[in-house]
Amino acid sequence: IRLYEREDYRGQMIEFTEDCSCLQDRFRFNEIHSLNVLEGSWVLYELSNYRGRQYLLMPGDYRRYQDWGATNARVGSLRRV
């Protein structure tokens, strides 16, 4: 999964292949505005340590956080399923 700091895949990008319990420890931002799921399925959590609202993401492109059903861009952790 590739996470981007801004909409439309702009700004700083980070790629994950494994679970991350605290996004801010690995990426200086806690807001993700766009992403690409390259393979497999992922769950994004609004808070760190896999807490808060959850969003199940299938392979595909998500140009804005609204595309995955979120009401804001906050992402605290993520897990591959």
Rank of each mutant, 00 (worst) to 15 (best):
F27K: 09
Y4H: 15
Y9C: 15
Q54D: 10
E5W: 15
Y9W: 11
F27C: 08
N49D: 06
R63N: 06
E15W: 05
D8Q: 14
A73R: 14
E5N: 05
E31C: 03
W42F: 05
L57W: 01
Y62N: 04
F16H: 12
V37W: 00
L44D: 00
D19M: 06
V81L: 13
D67G: 09
D19E: 11
R6E: 08
E5S: 12
D8T: 09
P59V: 05
Y4L: 01
V43Y: 02
R51G: 13
R26H: 10
R63C: 14
D67K: 07
L3H: 00
T71I: 12
L35M: 07
C22K: 04
S21Q: 02
R79E: 14
S34G: 05
R26W: 12
L44T: 08
F16W: 15
F27V: 05
N49M: 10
L56H: 14
V43W: 08
R6F: 02
N72H: 06
L57C: 08
Y65V: 07
M13E: 06
E5V: 12
V43K: 04
I32M: 11
V75N: 03
I14D: 13
L23Q: 02
G40Q: 07
Q12C: 02
E18D: 06
S77P: 00
L3P: 00
H33Q: 12
I14W: 05
R10Y: 05
S77Y: 00
Q66G: 11
D67V: 07
A70Y: 08
R64M: 05
Y45W: 06
E15H: 03
L38I: 10
R51C: 08
R63F: 10
Q24H: 13
R6K: 08
L57P: 11
R6W: 08
E31I: 15
E15L: 08
I14C: 09
V43M: 13
Q66P: 09
S21Y: 13
G69C: 13
N49A: 05
Y45G: 01
S41E: 13
F29Q: 12
P59W: 06
G52C: 01
N30P: 07
L44Y: 06
L38C: 05
L44F: 08
A73H: 15
R79Y: 04
R28N: 01
L44G: 08
E39W: 03
L47N: 09
E39V: 06
L78Y: 01
E18A: 09
V37K: 01
R74K: 04
E31G: 11
Y62D: 00
Y55S: 14
G69D: 05
M13F: 10
G69I: 06
T71W: 10
R53D: 14
V43G: 08
S34H: 01
M13L: 10
Y9Q: 13
Y50Q: 03
R6G: 09
F27D: 10
G11M: 02
I32Q: 02
G52Q: 01
E5G: 08
E39D: 07
G76S: 08
L44R: 00
N36M: 05
